[in-house]
Design a protein around this nucleic acid. Structure first.
Lengths: 130, 130
DNA sequence: ATACATGCAAACTTTTTGCGTCCCC
DNA sequence: GGGGACGCAAAAAGTTTGCATGTAT
């Protein structure tokens, strides 16, 4: 991965901003210091950087949003390679430990969602890389 | 909320499908039994049903995807009303309990992500509704 | 009867991509 | 010098919305 002015600036701004910005918000922010940067470059870099584990992309991976017909208490497990999503029992109930973690945020916490990430059986068989 | 053929069918198919389908996949599935249903209706209903707590929308709430510049172990807490996202310390490490939960899925689990949902301080002040 | 829901299509938003040029290694 | 990265702009993908009509209550 090559070190460019744009890439460095994107990382720098994202580290500085604690607002968990969207691609577009980050673009506007970087643009103040690098007016000729393009939105495409921001997207391309966010993609690369999250693939390399340098930044986090929030929310469940795949592009189209997904839905789940049951409100049973359960978590999800998602394959980082192929995007497959499965159910895992348990997860939603707030433990005493969670309450401790969350205390001090000022939020009224109603729910906890857990998502596990990893490789699904099929992708495991296909080896660690590609 | 009125009970219509389309709405019932959407719920029914979503309950039956365990693939956590996207809106479009669900549309294709429902269309086999209700050929004249429109994609717009599917979207409208998914919106209503998840707002009413009948189904779950996976992934972090807001429409544009958000990013986080740090890979430190931490969780997120999101306001279900205004969409604000804050950091919460701790969260990512896989506990023994998690390992138990995940055993049997066949996945190689690399990471755990936790997202708390609730009302942020500002929204709490503005009351439970509106 | 009437308010809510639908179908259709257009508009909008967000993300990806092709292409020619640039510049980091 | 060469291959990855960039800017630009167009296209694709996903979602929302206005409007006329249909229908559950």
């Amino acid at each position: 991965m090559r070190k460019t002015k744009q890439r460095s600036m994107i990382i720098e701004e994202l580290m500085k901003l604690h607002s968990h910005p969207s691609a577009d918000e980050l673009y506007e922010s970087v643009r103040k210091r690098l007016p000729r940067i393009s939105l495409g470059t921001v997207y391309r870099n966010l993609e690369i950087l999250s693939r390399e584990g340098i930044i986090h992309r929030l929310g469940s991976g795949g592009s189209p949003r997904r839905f789940d017909g049951t409100m049973d208490e359960h978590s999800h497990i998602r394959c980082t390679r192929c995007g497959r999503i499965d159910d895992v029992p348990s997860g939603g109930k707030l433990t005493e430990c969670d309450k401790g973690i969350v205390r001090g945020t000022g939020y009224r916490v109603l729910e906890r969602r857990v998502e596990f990430l990893g490789l699904c059986p099929a992708c495991r068989k296909r080896g660690a890389r590609g």
